[in-house]
Write a protein that binds this DNA or RNA. Structure first.
Lengths: 342, 342
DNA sequence: GCCATCTTTGGGAGCGCTCCCAACCGTATT
DNA sequence: AATACGGTTGGGAGCGCTCCCAAAGATGGC
């Protein structure tokens, strides 16, 4: 295996200097005749510039990191993260960069991964998601002099760049829809209250109910995003005889549907179900879930674009908020106000 | 923002040379007194070595690439890839490396991503998966002088390192189980025949049936891994009045179950269903799916370990084959030979 | 007390690239 | 004809690190 060739070698073969070859590769000003000759040599030799050398000299790696600090084991049971990865990956490819994935487990390796994330010369910037309230990761990033964008709404929202969906407005829409359907004993399966999405969806739903003169009273349970938690939460709620329930995530809603049928009840006849996410393929459940759809892929794409602008030196912290959309299907028992923006 | 500090700076502060600091960082031989002093400076200044410089000098990046050339849009509808990413990610972290993700879309960017994968100085090696028969990507990798490992069974299995599961034996087990249950009109929903998994599962199932003196006759359809394709395949198969069906993937099986119930039939009473993968959470379906379970996470982990050995200079192409396990649940209508190794 | 040996340390060379400045060419301007 | 000026090109310097060799100091055997 002969030595890899470098700019100098290519230049020698083409009868030009290293610098000229570099210009051809990077699109600088070169006479067309020279350019043609150099390109011929490149094609013939299969020369490819060395990424590490480039990074070192240009102080930019062309790599974006996606950091998901979650109990890794169950991460992909929720299609949310897959979609987010998809969105970031496609946007990353589009801008000609590479995506590095940092998934934290619960292991002792966690802190070593965190420090790897902020290693200089590894990535140009980082997208952080799935953080909880008061997550030390955010502080760590801020102290590390590494461009980053948060997906979600961090505590320190004022001083960081972030991309989020309007969880609150979306949940409010769900409440209004249920109220419009004439349901009077709504229940809530909330998402973890140590996440901004969990808090916002809960508050939004309660607000929406209040507008309609309704209340969940004690018909409220908190799940942990898992299907099983949705199921047990629903089973407990059933004691309060709700006629509607807003479940803060698709995945928990699948569990809730199961609990409903296990209790011998029928959805939507006995109880309307509306979920949040719109990620689980509708055909997966019977009845198909009515849900507040959030544009996850777009969020991922936008996060990448925002990050590139931060890397490019964007100054003022910017917040991007995507709106949700209510997709009415069978589980709510009525196509009342049709699909409507949130 | 002052200049990043480098080895030289740290050395100056600690009163030693660049080389000594390097030894402290990388665990070379240094007197304990010197070591203490240098470590103090590092802790105090928060010095972190520059990854690109390191890569350039040492000719090794510490990054592993995971390449999934699939129609990206539907990629994560199948939990398989999530699991695989999880497995590779955790093993990558364990060996102190970083994972880069290359997801191809169908876009025109595809070839540019392919070439990025083999860029020298970007990754040390690559794990390739989800390739089809005759996939040019494999050839491309072989020509590129880049260490790589294939997850699955490539055409050129003889000359490449790969990690696979014994699809054939697993499918055979499914056939035997169905036969043992007394089913006599088995059907097959195959996976795409341009993939080795599709071919092996089909052949394995047919072999297993033959051993038991059974045959699918014309009760065979091919799906495209999607839930919808499983549903339409099953709907068509129903005309042949099968009393059992082996579905080559969980996801297609979910669709098949739906078709069964839409036809007013009952699974498992009227028809036994056995699937392959064991990835969809059992509680997602009613009845819960009996399936041939493949250890996806372990496959991913093993692929990383194999790749590191290839990077380290492993010589003879090695094949790792994982065995599957039949998880008997309700969809097959009988706990006959219990859970059994394949 | 001298030389061989080991441990510890310093610094040169070089990885392959980008960035910048100077040199050079031919042509247009005065 | 002398000067000026774009368009091209070459090469020095340097990015921050690792690798290697040699120097210096410590130790021990004879």
């Amino acid at each position: 295996m002969e030595r890899r060739l470098n700019l100098e070698d290519v230049g020698r073969r083409a009868g030009v200097s290293r610098s000229t070859v570099s210009r051809v590769v990077n699109g600088g000003h070169v006479s067309s005749e020279t350019k043609r000759r150099v390109e011929a040599v490149i094609a013939e030799t299969g020369y490819r510039p060395h990424a590490a050398a480039r990074s070192l000299a240009s102080n930019s790696t062309g790599v974006i990191g996606l950091v998901i600090p979650s109990a890794a084991g169950t991460l992909f049971d929720d299609p949310y993260f897959g979609r987010l990865i998809l969105g970031t990956s496609s946007a990353t490819n589009e801008v000609g960069m590479t995506l590095a994935l940092f998934l934290f487990g619960d292991g002792p390796d966690e802190s070593s991964i965190i420090s790897r994330v902020v290693t200089p010369g590894l990535v140009d910037g980082v997208i952080v998601t799935a953080t909880t309230r008061g997550d030390p990761l955010i502080d760590h990033m801020q102290g590390a002099n590494m461009p980053f964008v948060v997906v979600g709404r961090p505590d320190s929202a004022g001083s960081t760049f972030c991309v989020d969906v309007d969880n609150r407005a979306g949940a409010r829409t769900a409440a209004r829809h249920l109220a419009a359907l004439g349901r009077s004993r709504p229940a809530l399966i909330a998402a973890p209250s140590n996440t901004s999405a969990g808090i916002d969806r809960r508050n939004g739903f309660l607000e929406g109910l209040a507008e309609a003169g309704l209340s969940v009273e004690d018909r409220i349970e908190e799940g942990d995003w898992s299907q099983e938690s949705g199921r047990t939460a629903m089973a407990r709620l059933l004691a309060g005889q709700p006629d509607a329930v807003f479940v803060s995530s698709d995945r928990m809603a699948v569990g809730a549907l199961r609990a409903v049928s296990e209790a011998g009840l029928n959805c939507p006849r006995d109880i309307s179900v509306v979920s949040f996410d719109g990620i689980v393929p509708p055909d997966l459940t019977t009845p198909r879930l009515t849900s507040v759809v959030q544009p996850v892929t777009e969020v991922g794409e936008r996060a990448v674009r925002l990050l590139t602008s931060v890397i490019g030196g964007a100054a003022a912290p910017e917040h991007v908020v995507f709106q949700t959309r209510l997709a009415v299907r069978e589980s709510c028992g009525g196509a009342a106000p049709a699909e409507t923006g949130a």
